[in-house]
Structures are given as C-alpha cells and as structure tokens.
C-alpha cells in the first residue's frame, strides 16, 4: 500500500469533528466542572456516561419514549454524583479518586452480570433503540462535507445535534462559572480551608459540582448511546475516564471552551498518528521486529500516557490557560 499523508490527514480531520470528538467534548465539559473548576479528582466519570446511556436504552427497550429515557439517564447520573461525593468529599482528594473508579467499575460489572441480564442484556448490550432520533433527521440521504472530509446523512445529523449539545453545555458552564458561584468553586480548588473560613459551604459546593458534572457526563453517555444505537458494558472501561482527563488537560482545565478545543485536537492528533503509523508499518518504513500493525493501537495509548504526564507537569494550564497562572505555580 502506498504511503498517503493526505489520506491520513482526511481521516484525522473526520475524527477531529466527528462523533468521537463530540463524545469527548461533552464528557470533558462535565469533567471540567469537577476537575477543572473545583479540583475534584473524579476517576469514575465514565460511570455517569454508563448511567446516561443505559438509562436511555433500558427505558426505550421497556417501551418508554426516548425523551423519558434521556431524562431518567440524566437524573440517575445526578444521583450517582451525589453518591460519589457523600462518603468522600470530606476526605482527601485521593479517596474520591479511588472510590469513584471503584464505583464506576461496580456499575460496569453489574450491567455485565447475568443477574441483571433481563434488564441490561448482559455482555451483548442493547441495540436499536434510537430509531426515533434518526426519524427526525432532516438531511436527505447522501454524503455531506468539505473536500474529502465527508459524512453520511445520519452521522451528520448526529454530529450536528452533538455539537449543538456541546455548545449548550459550554454556555451553561460559562454562565455558572463567570458568576459568583464559579468564583467559590475556584476558591475551593485552590484552598478549601480558605473558602470555609469565609463562610462557604464547601461540602455543598462539591456535591453540586459532582451533580452538574455528572449530568453533563450523562448527556455524553446519551449521545454515545443514541448515536451508535447501542450500549455495551465494555464501552465503559476506566480508560475512557483517563482519555477524558487527557482531553481536559490538553485544552485547559478551568476554561469553559478548554474541553472542546482539547477534544478536537486530541482526536486529530490521535487519529493522525495512528493513520500515519499504520501506513508506515504496512509500507515497510517501520520494520516488523519493531512494530506490527496490531501494535499500533498500543503505541497510541503510550503516546496518550506520555502526553498526559508531560502536559500536567510542564503545562498544567493546557492550551487555553494563561501563562501567568503557571508562573505563580513555579513560585
């Protein structure tokens, strides 16, 4: 096969604005409320997505309307956020990280279990429950896009709705965080004892942050479920949360638009490296003893991991953060 850098670029662009980017932008906006603004280390964010996705799928599967499913999914995620917070928010941040990752795993294992199969359909998951969404698609059949970066009508419909949702959530977060409410959140992120000494109910704010972040996460889960018309327990692995962290940290924690920029860039870089590596391997530029085609996926994760380590250490404010803030860190 020929080495075709233009094709890699087209693939990367499609990825950067496609459904994955929407999914991670939404998930990132939710995570940003908790991690970016409040400094809460929620490592079980994927649990909110699971709850949102399954809430929708199960409701529709049992004969309920799609909108009710979405509502149930989001409500469940709000409750999950409170559940995460109640035992841990008063403790050191490490405990929240451990408990949330464990709770998200419990949820995944439960949806997988044979005991809940009547509801969740176990490892096979639930499919074909969002026809109503695609019935609303205003785009006639065909291919849409710019140059070679194109999508079919249904994907385009999902992407358009998805980016609108992202815009809505970003607007909400921006409204909240530029208000005095956001000021308190940022104070808690920096020093919760200071916030407490000034009469702020830190516990309450943290719970609110977890609930709002969880609700937006659930919306990401709903988008994922509806767009792909399927939910499966193993789509909700812990690694999803870690990728969402990479997205938020890349874009700039504590910036309303950070996760959006982060997600677009993240998916562009990830897809581009993968496409280039794959082509390089199959064209023989990279010898077989060094890397095989199957191992390219692993290289991606190594790069993500390295990027995460380097960014959080050397540019914790991300792309959108101000340099001034970092200088203060260095003091």
């Amino acid at each position: 096969m020929d080495f075709d850098i233009v094709r890699s670029f087209v693939d990367a662009m499609r990825s950067a604005f496609g459904t994955s980017a929407v999914l991670f932008a939404l998930a990132g906006v939710g995570l940003n409320v908790m991690f970016g603004y409040t400094g809460l280390l929620n490592f079980g964010h994927v649990g909110s997505l699971l709850v949102g996705g399954y809430g929708t799928a199960i409701t529709v599967n049992l004969g309920g309307p799609l909108w009710l499913g979405i509502l149930i999914g989001i409500t469940a995620a709000v409750l999950l956020g409170l559940l995460y917070g109640l035992p841990t928010v008063r403790l050191r941040e490490d405990y929240l990280a451990i408990v949330t990752i464990a709770a998200a795993e419990i949820l995944r294992l439960l949806t997988r279990s044979s005991a809940l199969e009547p509801l969740t359909q176990g490892v096979f998951g639930i499919q074909k429950f969002a026809d109503n969404f695609y019935d609303l698609n205003p785009f006639p059949r065909g291919s849409y896009g710019v140059w070679r970066i194109t999508w079919d009508a249904n994907t385009l419909w999902a992407i358009v709705v998805g980016w609108l949702l992202v815009a809505l959530c970003v607007w909400l977060v921006w409204m909240l965080t530029r208000a005095p409410w956001g000021r308190v959140l940022k104070a808690i992120r920096e020093d919760e004892d200071a916030a407490r000494s000034l009469g702020k109910n830190v516990f309450g704010y943290k719970l609110q942050s977890l609930a709002i972040g969880g609700a937006i996460g659930a919306l990401a889960g709903v988008f994922f479920a509806v767009q792909s018309q399927s939910v499966n327990p193993d789509s909700f692995q812990p690694i999803f949360t870690f990728l969402a962290y990479a997205v938020v940290i890349l874009g700039g924690p504590g910036r309303a638009l950070g996760p959006v920029v982060g997600s677009i860039l993240f998916w562009f870089l990830l897809s581009f490296t993968e496409a280039v590596l794959r082509q390089a391997v199959s064209a023989g530029f990279i010898p077989d003893w060094l890397l095989t085609a199957q191992e390219v996926a692993a290289v991606r994760w190594i790069l993500v991991g390295l990027g995460l380590m380097l960014l959080i250490t050397f540019r914790p404010q991300g792309l959108l953060g101000s340099r001034e803030e970092t200088l203060i860190d260095a003091r």
């Binding site: 400094g39 280390l41 490592f43 941040e93 490490d94 990280a97 690694i239 870690f242 962290y245 940290i249 692993a298 290289v299 994760w301 190594i302 993500v304 991991g305 390295l306 990027g307 995460l308 380590m309 959080i312 250490t313 914790p316």
Partner: peptide, 18 residues
C-alpha cells in the same frame, strides 16, 4: 498532589502498553 495522581495515570498507560 492532583497533578501527581494524573501523572501516575499517564505512567500506568505508558508502562502497561509498553
């Protein structure tokens, strides 16, 4: 501390996939 924990997450990804 929070950044350190995120670093360990990155490290875990790197080592595991290596």
């Amino acid at each position: 501390n929070i950044s350190l924990i995120v670093t360990t997450i990155g490290l875990s990804l790197v080592v595991r996939h290596v």
